[in-house]
Amino acid sequence: MTQKITQELLDELVSLERLLLEPHVRESKERLSLLLDDDFYEISANGLLFDKRHVLARLPCEKVPQFYNQDFRGQMLSETIAQLTYHAAYRKNAYSNLQFSLRMSLWRDIGSGWRLLFHQGTPCPEFALRYD
């Protein structure tokens, strides 16, 4: 049975999730490594599987796309695992179309802070963006 997440923890995890989208974090293996759990893996929107090693090798070299995210919801799956779901839209550059997805992340409390354990993005129908 899932447990209710506190607003304080939800706010903290949303901040951490958004921090992963910041150019100064994405371009730094050291900063990324501090946010990603050693057991981290991701299933990309096109079905590819990446572990922490792959992400640390790939992300700092990628051009940072433009991201929007909203409608965050969270729940506790255990005392040390929290789940976030949200809608995201992104584009690689000013000339490309927005891509819409439903995102899900699992965050693990390692005692000294929260680390991203799992992430998945699944394409979804277009939704109205809110710029708040």
Rank of each mutant, 00 (worst) to 15 (best):
M1K: 10
T2L: 11
Q3V: 04
Q3Y: 12
K4F: 05
I5W: 02
T6Y: 07
T6Q: 12
Q7I: 02
Q7V: 05
L9V: 11
E12M: 07
E12W: 01
L16I: 08
L19V: 03
L20I: 10
L20Q: 09
L20A: 05
E22G: 00
E22R: 00
P23Y: 01
P23H: 01
P23R: 02
P23E: 13
P23T: 11
P23F: 01
V25G: 01
S28K: 01
K29F: 04
E30G: 00
R31W: 06
L32E: 05
L32G: 02
L35V: 02
L35G: 03
L36H: 05
F40V: 08
F40C: 05
A45E: 09
G47K: 06
L48V: 08
F50T: 06
D51H: 10
R53N: 14
R53P: 01
R53Y: 07
V55H: 07
L59W: 10
P60S: 06
C61F: 09
C61H: 14
E62G: 00
K63C: 00
Q66F: 07
Q66A: 05
Q66D: 12
F67V: 03
Y68D: 01
Q70W: 09
D71M: 03
R73F: 10
Q75F: 08
M76C: 10
L77Q: 12
L77V: 10
S78D: 13
E79G: 15
A82R: 01
Q83R: 15
Q83M: 15
T85H: 11
A88M: 13
A89I: 14
A89Q: 13
Y90I: 00
Y90D: 01
R91T: 13
K92H: 02
A94K: 15
A94L: 13
S96H: 03
Q99I: 13
F100E: 09
F100M: 09
L102F: 14
R103A: 07
M104D: 02
W107A: 12
R108V: 09
D109I: 01
D109H: 11
G111V: 05
G113S: 13
L117I: 09
L117F: 09
L117D: 11
L117V: 08
F118M: 03
G121P: 00
T122R: 02
T122H: 06
P123S: 05
P123L: 14
C124Y: 00
P125S: 10
E126L: 12
E126G: 07
F127Y: 03
L129T: 02
Y131I: 04
Y131C: 04
Y131S: 00
D132N: 14
